[in-house]
Design a protein around this nucleic acid. Structure first.
Lengths: 121, 121
DNA sequence: CCGTATCCGTAACGATACTG
DNA sequence: CAGTATCGTTACGGATACGG
C-alpha cells in the first residue's frame, strides 16, 4: 500500500525542475504516445513508422523519435547494410511508461460521456 | 480484472476524435495539472489562485480555468457580492481525473534516475 | 532507406494596460 | 476582486526539397 505523495510545483523553477513536468509534456505532445504504442507491438524502421501513421510528417517523426530516445523510452539500432536499416524499439523504461499512460487513456474512454456532456454546455 | 484495451489512433481523423487525445493534451499543457492539484486542497478565488502559483499570468489562468470548466473538471461559482467573489473547485470528475494523473507523476518520480541517466548521454 | 535543411503559418504564452 | 484586450515573442508543426 503506497503512501507516496507528490509536491506540486507552484513556482516557475519548481515547475521546470519537476521530473513529472517533462513527462507530462511528453504525454501531451502530438505523436509520442502514438509512436510508443505502435512500437509496443514490435520494432519498426523509420519509413515503416512514417507510413504507419497517416498525417505524421517525416520531420516530426524524426524529432519525436529523437526526443523519445533521449528520454530512454525507445532504442535506435543502426544496422550497417545497404540499404540502411534502423530499428526503433521500446525499452523496458518505455514499456513501463506506457502503463500509467494507458491508465489515463482508459480514464478518458470511461468518462467520455461525462466529458462530452460537460462540453455541450 | 480488467481486459479493456485501447485502439491507438493512427490517422489524423482518429487522432482528433480520440477521447484520450484531448485528455492527454490537457495533461501536457503548462498549468492545468498545477491548478487542479491546488484546487484539490480546497476551493479558491481567482486572485488567490493567481498568487498561489508564481509565474502564472492572469491571462493564462483565465484561459486554463475556462478550459477546465468546459471539460467539467472544475466548477466556477459566482457569488454576487461586493467585492465579487468567484469560487473555483474540483468536481467529482476532476477528482477522479487526478488519480491517473498522479500515477503518471509517481511514475516520473520513481524513474527519475533512469530518465536522468538516459538524458546524460 | 533514412534522414536533414529551409520556409512558413498557427498557436501558446508572457507582459502590460485597462474594465465592471 | 475578477477579469478582458492588445501586443510581441517563442515553440509547435506541416510542406517541400535535398543529401548519405
Amino acid at each position: 500500500m503506497s503512501t507516496a505523495t507528490i509536491t506540486v510545483p507552484v513556482t516557475v523553477a519548481e515547475h521546470e525542475n519537476c521530473p513529472a513536468t517533462s513527462v507530462l509534456r511528453r504525454v501531451g505532445d502530438k505523436w509520442s504516445v502514438v509512436i510508443l504504442s505502435i512500437l509496443e507491438r514490435g520494432a519498426h524502421g523509420f519509413n515503416e513508422l512514417d507510413r504507419s501513421v497517416e498525417g505524421l510528417s517525416r520531420r516530426m517523426l524524426t524529432r519525436t523519435v529523437r526526443a523519445l530516445e533521449e528520454d530512454g523510452l525507445i532504442s535506435r539500432t543502426v544496422h550497417p547494410r545497404v540499404p540502411p536499416r534502423v530499428d526503433y524499439a521500446l525499452t523496458d523504461l518505455g514499456r513501463s511508461f506506457l502503463e500509467p499512460v494507458r491508465a489515463l487513456g482508459l480514464w478518458a474512454v470511461a468518462h467520455q460521456s461525462d466529458l462530452e456532456a460537460a462540453h455541450s454546455r
